[in-house]
Design a protein around this nucleic acid. Sequence first.
DNA 1: TTTTTTAAAATCATCGATTTATTTATTTAC
DNA 2: GTAAATAAATAAATCGATGATTTTAAAAAA
Lengths: 226, 226
Amino acid sequence: MTDLRSADLPASTTLSSTLVARLRTAIMNGELVPGAKLVLDRMRASYGVSLSPLREALCRLESEGLVEIVDQRGYRVAPVSRDNLAEVIRLRAELEGLAAREAIAHGDAAWEGRVLSAHHQLTRCQRGSRSPGEQEAWERAHRAFHAELISACRMPMLQQFCETLHDQGDRYRRIFLKDHTPDPHVPAEHAAIAQAMIERRAEDAVGLLRDHIERTGRKIMAALCP
Amino acid sequence: MTDLRSADLPASTTLSSTLVARLRTAIMNGELVPGAKLVLDRMRASYGVSLSPLREALCRLESEGLVEIVDQRGYRVAPVSRDNLAEVIRLRAELEGLAAREAIAHGDAAWEGRVLSAHHQLTRCQRGSRSPGEQEAWERAHRAFHAELISACRMPMLQQFCETLHDQGDRYRRIFLKDHTPDPHVPAEHAAIAQAMIERRAEDAVGLLRDHIERTGRKIMAALCP
DNA sequence: TTTTTTAAAATCATCGATTTATTTATTTAC
DNA sequence: GTAAATAAATAAATCGATGATTTTAAAAAA
């Protein structure tokens, strides 16, 4: 899956890939609201592209669970629901836990360094959304941090699953916690997780990670439900 | 994700979806060999379709992990490797185990009935590939059986993950165990798993399922490696 | 011989137009 | 008044052609 977020080479960028990035951002931020119908002709006009790259982009976003496609009946932004959020949280806790355990088992000193670095960069970002730019920088650093934690697990498919689940959860957070003040516990949780990972305290790390995922998940759930 | 394998309504079938089914079968059977380049123009000719549905089909197959896409550089059948097989087996064991546990917790009598029925139908299929048709019938029943075991887990994304992983593993089996005699232990394992699931013996069921997945996985690994 | 440059061929990406299917609106029968 | 049938409008699916990029093959330079 091509991913413009990972800061790899700008590379030869295809129109579809650019679109994937733009649409993903729009969906994750709730600008394209959950459940909204995505009429191809209208999008073609508003994004100034033809149908082919648009279809391709939407197809890729379907595999990330951000878009739903029904044959001959079109596209819509993936809807949100209590059940879906619950599953995302549950699966994230399980799969990131598994991945973290493997990363601790296989990670080397370079990995420790990357975790440390990613955590440091995260602490340098301001969470309280001053400017949208700063908020976006925090989101990027946050994503990178969580990805780095499991980057040494040697299970690329599992990493992919985790990334997908993380994105899904993030969408809920961005939509339903949009104007909440930043959770004050989060920075300490991140620090504790990073610390435990680097010190190879597997049980601690997995426990802390699970708690972090489940606690933040419950906050979103509380905002979503009633 | 549209799926022609589930025997739902023939429905209004789009060309892309038909192609997905055809290509998936071809890839899973090894007719399209792992790593092979999929040149659009050539495929367009041999399948008698235009580029649009072809691209779309390949895009969908990428999300199933059966095709690899690189921007501006084309499509290829997903390669196989020892590491990938190991990850597929490991993840299948973990995720199907989790799903089975949930299914046992949530399943009702109707689910028990479906499991029983799926298992019965599986026993009615001949494994020793007499005709390709009979072999294909067994494959279908086998897939349906494993899907039914976890159908009550109330976690659609997890079910999707499991289906993808099952397909991936099946491809290895079909390719590398093509001319092996059917594994004689498998029918008893299936029976034991179904029995334990229905009787709600969670630990037994998950253990048996894991063993089944890992044991058959090792057989494939042995054929793949040296 | 090996490497670099250049040119040609192959192949992918994108477009605009056409065909097909679905949805909505309208009519007709009961 | 409701329900089935039909017609019009909307939107998706597909096609064939055109424009970019990459790969290859060949030629030139080191």
